[in-house]
Design a protein around this nucleic acid. Sequence first.
DNA 1: GTCAAGTTTCTTGTATACAAGGTTTTCAAC
DNA 2: GTTGAAAACCTTGTATACAAGAAACTTGAC
Lengths: 217, 217
Amino acid sequence: MDVRRADHILEDLEQMIVTGNFADGERLDEIRLADHFGVSRTPIREALQKLAASGLVEHLPRRGVFVREPGPVELVEMFETMAELEAACGRFAALRISEAGLAALREANDLCKLAVATDDADHYYRQNERFHHLIYAASQNSFLEAQAAKLQKRLKAYRRMQLHLRGRLGQSMAEHEAIVAALSAGDGCAAADALRTHVAVQGEKFHHLLSHLKSKR
Amino acid sequence: MDVRRADHILEDLEQMIVTGNFADGERLDEIRLADHFGVSRTPIREALQKLAASGLVEHLPRRGVFVREPGPVELVEMFETMAELEAACGRFAALRISEAGLAALREANDLCKLAVATDDADHYYRQNERFHHLIYAASQNSFLEAQAAKLQKRLKAYRRMQLHLRGRLGQSMAEHEAIVAALSAGDGCAAADALRTHVAVQGEKFHHLLSHLKSKR
DNA sequence: GTCAAGTTTCTTGTATACAAGGTTTTCAAC
DNA sequence: GTTGAAAACCTTGTATACAAGAAACTTGAC
């Protein structure tokens, strides 16, 4: 209850930022937050520092911490990097994945297909996440896995935006099939390429979405 | 002088940990450190949290923070990840590098060669670092660049260990040539492969070094 | 002598008080 | 009315006091 409170503050703040409770560039007032959570400034400051370390907010000395929504350029960069990280996971996974791992992957993919068939975007979203996390883990490289999971979490909000684009789900499933096939065949290069494309396409779709929104304004 | 002190504490602690001022698993006593730096526990705690965020130390609630030297397995994982990050940088750089960037890269490489010729390991070390950072930057992806630079810094101490191995410098230079050639030709795949190998070899050499040290004991 | 429970001591986590720098407002001069 | 400086206010950064949990030590029983 004690440790969990500090953790709870961090998680809660993360959630508040990601879900857009704060305007972009808004200062996170320590006193107001301390008030809100019913604690003193000290644990708030600790949470804010962790957020700054994870890149969700920016800390300017003697000025405060500000929410820092990444701009379009940075988002594209992050998606590009995510694509490369996933490609790396796929390359290792193709060489190292176990039969049990493959079975789990196929199962997750089947659940994805089911979600697409029933047009359950929310369910697809969760199973797709599981599918990708299984690949990270199958790389048998905990460090790489952690890096990939971290960036994936960071991009979660933006990934979700473009999931609802027409036709994307079907295309995504076809890509999943190619990924599973490459991993089954133990073809590192094919797995890396399939995953890179799969993720990069998401980045591009997102980019289009951004341009579209901007042109509407 | 004010802001710089807090930063100075962090840098200093980093240095102390990396250079082995603390034993592996040792607890970093807040009071002792506060004493040592002539400040209160508060800024020390902030620095320790940042260190924990960067993975250099581990924070156990209500127990303290402990220096966490990565074990052999984790180090190999980190080198593997580094190789993939550099490969990704190379892939993008091959498509995006400018003439000026290529010129800078060739210059850095020439300085590396010079250092090898004069057997100046220290100079080679610095120029080699510059060479790699130029490639990160040439990826034209600031986010990826930052990721690569961060991990490179983390591995600096271990990379340095294996630089003095016999014959490594010559081999390393040959690999540099291949990298520059691939980037000049705009061949993303070749650049990625060359960089991946170049870094992965370092990881393997390091692994051998570790086994060697262990068997000596 | 060993083990266990209770107590003491020590360390971390949190709250609060104070210091120092930044921002805004006010007021005067042009 | 606008500009500039000074002062008041506000926020962050640091120090210190206190609370709470963990480790170590003592003491007693077997």
